[in-house]
Amino acid sequence: MRASSPDFAERPPAPFASGRDHAACRAAIRQGSRSFHAASLLLPPGTRRAAYGLYAFCRHSDDAVDEARAGTSAAAVVRLQARLARAYAGDPADSPADRALADILAAYAIPRTLPEALLDGLAWDARGRRYETLSDLCAYAARVAGSVGAMMTLIMGVRDPEILARACDLGVAMQLTNIARDVGEDARAGRLYLPLRWLAEEGIEPDAFLAKPEASPAIGRLVARLLDAAELLYARSESGIRGLPPGCRPAIRAARLIYAEIGREIERAGHDSVSRRARVPGRRKAALLARAALPRATVPAPAPCLPETAFLVAAVSAVPAPTAVPGWWDLGGKVVRVLDMIEILREREALARESAP
């Protein structure tokens, strides 16, 4: 049974997504993000399945905007907004990700503000928006990543504002790390996320850098500043991880550790993310997965919600929690749980092979 809210259409409790749809969503994360996929193996089966569905829709949305022809990205965002509306109306588009999303939105009473924030961030990308300050950049990161952190928290059954604030911190930190890692790749695609005020302080003209992106001590200093900002948020997120259900903590801590390690790899490369792209080796990733089961000895004191993510936390407070999460994530009970475990064992064996010398 789900919460009563104008965000959600009245519809029968049977799920839209089939076993084949869930398999397609699982394949999307396996192909799209090795880091998230590795961390996801530590989630409980039902939570993992929902996370895959959410990831698949987010991945599809990002790809749809990135792959749109020049001048048509805005139209791609409009189409995504229409698909989101259909998912909330109980009439999802004919796609595994859309069917899985429709089930997730209703089952976990996810307020519409959260996925709409993601699409808003993609619309900013479509317009080629640039960011004057770190706060402006965090407002973007709140939309494309903080919103996902908040939705994942709801999928894990937690709606506490303090935990949601820390989940948003983690999402923003990951996005800042992504930006720090992809400075060169973004520039060659005509995209610029480094704060304009920082560039001006270093005497760097934005369009000149985009025309000829090259590694330099000045760009390296800006990358270091981004990583410092991310590190503060990674530390703040730890208290939120401790507030999650025990079975979910290792996976989220693993994602946090792996993404923070991307920052360490950038540092080891002299903060050059123009001529190279940092990658965490498989052996190191496996070690971080093992370490994720151990909580940090010290956790920072509670901190106020980032101003840039406060609207996401407030949106959750405005929507009642579901009285119970439907059991249809089990898709038939013990047989499916056994098959799911076999699949996870295969994926862990593949990760072990990747990390072997």
Rank of each mutant, 00 (worst) to 15 (best):
M174F: 10
A3K: 01
L210M: 09
G128I: 13
I266N: 02
L232H: 03
A218T: 03
S61W: 04
L170G: 11
S35L: 14
L199D: 03
R26M: 10
A3R: 03
D94W: 04
A117C: 10
P357T: 10
L196M: 14
W124A: 15
V299C: 07
G46A: 15
A93C: 07
P213Y: 05
A117Y: 09
D21H: 02
I29G: 03
A9Y: 10
Y259G: 02
R291S: 09
A200M: 06
A24C: 13
S216G: 05
R188N: 05
E162C: 09
I342Q: 11
P326Q: 04
P326W: 08
E308S: 10
R264S: 08
Y52C: 12
I204H: 01
R166F: 14
T309C: 13
V274H: 00
P44C: 11
D66C: 06
G243F: 11
S135H: 11
A76L: 01
A215G: 07
A314H: 08
R30H: 13
A260I: 00
A255R: 00
V274D: 02
G327S: 07
A224I: 02
A165P: 13
R112K: 10
R86F: 00
A215I: 00
L192M: 03
A139M: 06
V319E: 06
F311T: 00
A290C: 05
R346I: 08
A218E: 15
A102T: 01
